[in-house]
Design a protein around this nucleic acid. Structure first.
Lengths: 339, 339
DNA sequence: AACTTCCATGCAACCGGTTACATGAAACCG
DNA sequence: CGGTTTCATGTAACCGGTTGCATGGAAGTT
């Protein structure tokens, strides 16, 4: 492997000049620069990242922390892969790499921080793992730039990215109202999670804005999984005055609800209209098609990358970022041409 | 940040001894070792990975190459996340980290190899990206240990991991035969892909073993996507003598086929039985439940990790690994208690 | 007692970059 | 034309580990 000194010798310059060509190209004479670059290409010189990191204490790597808890095998962020692609792409474009870190059940609380320090990681991104993980605490409390998805975190250099859950929920309710529904229920996510709480808030706010009464029995808490949506819907159908529309705070729950409605011999959307949240792949596939609020999946990754790079380079902490959601109308709230 | 020399000074030893404590603990006197370890813990010493990599030329990092081609946004390996978790977990247990590398549309063919060299990556894992990607060629041809999933690759230090696709397909056909079906069709994946070709081979072999005639019109090629399964099924239903069972070489296609059957006014499993392949999450959710061959998702990651680490440490190339599949019986081939 | 072997450790060079500071030549300026 | 500024580059220390070789003392051997 060619080293910087070897390349320098071949070009008749010092290693400092070569180094400058790769880091501050503008300060070196154009002819010298061209000579060095062409020679570098010829001999296949590649700067060694470890040496660079050692000298600069910046690795150009960002850590990704996500949950691999095997005790909850079913748990998945609905867009893990899309977020990862968006994140990776955005980081690559700016010359950063992504190093995977994962919770290990036998880890000590500061494992992540230690890993970050050992590798000189420039920043970290958390994908919300759906629970309070104490092992993130030391990291968030450190000076390391941290960006969290779907959940606020506290620390000197932390920020977070999430969908505008409340606005999306309001749009869901507004849409149901616009199609003529007046008894609108909701199946919430766990209200201790941020998205769960925010979507409930949006639901309540929009009800108020539309002048509809808030009837507590129309609010049932779920856990984002399919079976909880199913159970919640069955409970709603048993009410004295059952709803004619349901906003489920997650598509999986909406699909569970859909099944409960169908089993009860009722029809979607004729008897009950349904709106979900997320726009998972399945939403388009399950008949009659699920109307839902699409989250900007790739945008999560892009926004997280932008935030972490800003923090790395500019020593400021950008405010939390709310990504807009988009209403996608399918058959569950009206006729869908595709079914 | 504490350095090795600082720790050495505090303990009254040389940095060489400290280094040995972390790399060859057994060669250093037990008392000295304890002193060094306890002092290290007290002052929070962490070895710097960049310095270590620079000195040893081994990074203890493995690269992961997967497809993020935004021109094919729908493309996904069916188990990307599960594989990633398995891989990450297995690597962590042996002290390796995972660095994400991704195709970039403007990359040159040897981009990956360059990235590997710059970072001194010890090995690489490919997740089959479903196409022939020329940018993998230089890497496979190099001396870098490479493990590929679902596709054989050629090179001096390469191996691959895949499910035993042929055996799984045979089991699918055998199961359909055992439930009394005699006209068994198949919807294949692209036969230029390894899994596509192998599943077709298994289908044909089992037909022969059961003494059933191979009727070419019962073999329709799909592309693993839902819509191709739908189209293929419609074609099969138009036959003079339509099949009473279909083995689809992927769950998504099977679900497409399911829809085509339902739309034609026929019932699954009464009129037509269906078996898929993969056991994607949706397989359990779509009524009446899809019988399928489950792949050992986490096993992919574990096997890939084991293979790459073997190649790194032992300078041998392990043979390709075939993971067994498991038949999961659901409603699409008979009554399912859950529906 | 002399010799060999083994054990634990130190010495010092090395890995391949970066960068503060110094230097010398050319350009600019009144 | 001497002095100042600017530009391009070189010098050399430094980042924080690893490791081949040397060393000295203890243990084992004859």
């Amino acid at each position: 492997m060619a080293t910087i000194r070897e390349l320098a010798r071949l070009c008749g310059v010092s290693s400092a000049t070569v180094s400058r060509v790769f880091n501050n190209p503008e300060v070196v004479n154009a002819q010298t620069r061209e000579l060095i670059l062409s020679t570098a290409a010829r001999i296949g010189y590649l700067p060694n990242e470890s040496a660079r990191t050692l000298a600069t204490k910046r690795s150009r790597m960002v850590g990704l922390i996500w949950d691999t808890d095997h005790r909850r095998p079913g748990w998945r962020h609905p867009f893990f892969q899309e977020i990862l692609i968006g994140l990776k792409t955005a980081l690559s474009e700016r010359g950063y790499h992504l190093l995977m870190l994962a919770t290990s059940e036998d880890g000590t609380p500061d494992d992540f921080l230690r890993a970050v320090r050992r590798h000189n990681l420039d920043g970290v991104v958390f994908i919300d793992n759906g629970r309070d993980d104490p092992s993130l605490q030391p990291l968030a409390a450190s000076e390391v730039p941290c960006v969290s998805l779907d959940r606020p975190i506290e620390g000197p250099r932390t920020t977070y990215v999430t969908s505008d859950n409340a606005a999306g929920a309001r749009e869901a309710v507004r849409h149901l109202h616009a199609t003529g529904r007046r008894v609108i229920a909701t199946i919430t996510g766990p209200t201790r999670t941020r998205p769960g709480a925010e979507r409930l808030r949006g639901y309540l706010e929009e009800l108020a804005a539309l002048g509809l009464a808030h009837r507590p029995e129309l609010v049932v808490e779920g856990d984002f999984y399919l079976s909880s949506g199913y159970a919640a819907m069955r409970a709603l159908l048993e009410l004295e005055e059952p709803p004619d529309a349901v906003f489920a705070a997650g598509d999986e729950m909406a699909i569970g609800a859909l099944r409960a409605v169908t089993e009860a011999g009722l029809k979607v959307p004729e008897d009950i209209a349904l709106v979900g949240f997320d726009d998972i792949e399945l939403a388009a596939l399950v008949p009659p098609g699920l109307t839902t609020l699409a989250q900007d999946k790739a945008g999560f990754g892009t926004a997280a990358a932008a935030a972490v790079i800003t923090m790395i380079n500019e020593d400021v902490t950008p405010p939390s970022r709310l990504l807009p959601t988009t209403l996608v109308v399918r058959g569950s709230t009206g006729p869908d041409p595709r079914f």
